[in-house]
């Protein structure tokens, strides 16, 4: 059934999957996103490929909008906020550094592979983060306690819907139930994706406002 959001339960916590490619944890009032890849356009430009950097603006605007809408206590970014340490321009840096104050929110970044070497103020950098029920990381971490769900980014999961005549791909949330890993969709507009395993449980983001469990 397509919905405006999908709720998933883990122990006594609930997780709300939003079509804006973010995960809301209502109990702790935390909002999670991942894989934004800011500065990707500029990284390509430096390498002689003319990709516009207009999408950074869009991505930041979308972050502002969801924070305003859900008013969380904290924004946790599960890695790859930036595309490369070489492509953080001064205007981009100041926009990111102002984010916390202008939105009046704490921001934590779990360092992703693309973030290595990036340094910005007003954001707390962590390697991973544990809470009672969850383990937040960029890439999945194996071997942890039974009752803990690993929430991570990195994979840019995608899935498809098809019938006899047609097939379309969408970004999705993907749950690896066997290994207890929940993969979030890439938040950034300028990101591709990879099809995920058929054994995963999937929630496809079919439009900006709708999500559908498959």
């Amino acid at each position: 059934m397509k919905k405006n959001s999908s709720v998933f339960h883990w122990g006594d916590s609930s997780l709300e999957m939003l079509p804006s490619r973010a995960l809301l944890l209502p109990q702790t009032n935390e909002l999670l996103i991942c894989d934004i890849h800011l500065g990707k356009g500029e990284y390509f430009q430096q390498n002689g490929i003319p990709l516009t950097n207009n999408s950074d603006e869009q991505n930041l605007l979308r972050i502002k909008n969801i924070v305003k809408k859900y008013n969380p206590h904290k924004l946790i970014i599960l890695g790859d906020l930036f595309h490369s340490k070489y492509s953080i321009s001064d205007p981009l840096r100041s926009k990111v550094e102002n984010l916390s104050e202008s939105l009046n929110i704490k921001i934590e970044l779990i360092v992703g592979n693309h973030d290595i070497g990036c340094k910005v103020k007003n954001i707390t950098f962590l390697n991973f983060k544990k809470s009672s029920n969850f383990l937040f990381s960029h890439e999945p971490i194996g071997n942890f306690d039974n009752n803990i769900l690993n929430i991570c980014g990195h994979y840019h999961p995608k899935t498809f819907l098809k019938n006899a005549k047609d097939k379309l791909y969408f970004k999705c949330f993907a749950m690896d139930e066997k290994n207890k890993i929940l993969y979030l969709p890439a938040f950034g507009d300028l990101t591709g994706g990879y099809p995920c395993k058929s054994s995963f449980r999937k929630w496809a983001i079919i439009s900006e406002k709708e999500i559908l469990e498959i």
Binding site: G41, E42, Q45, Q46, G48, P50, T52, N53, N54, S87, S89
Partner: peptide
């Protein structure tokens, strides 16, 4: 222009040079 600046909208291609 495309090769020299990346495109018409110069603001969007600040780091570009080919």
């Amino acid at each position: 222009e495309f090769l020299e600046y990346g495109g018409k909208c110069l603001k969007a291609y600040p780091k570009y040079k080919k």
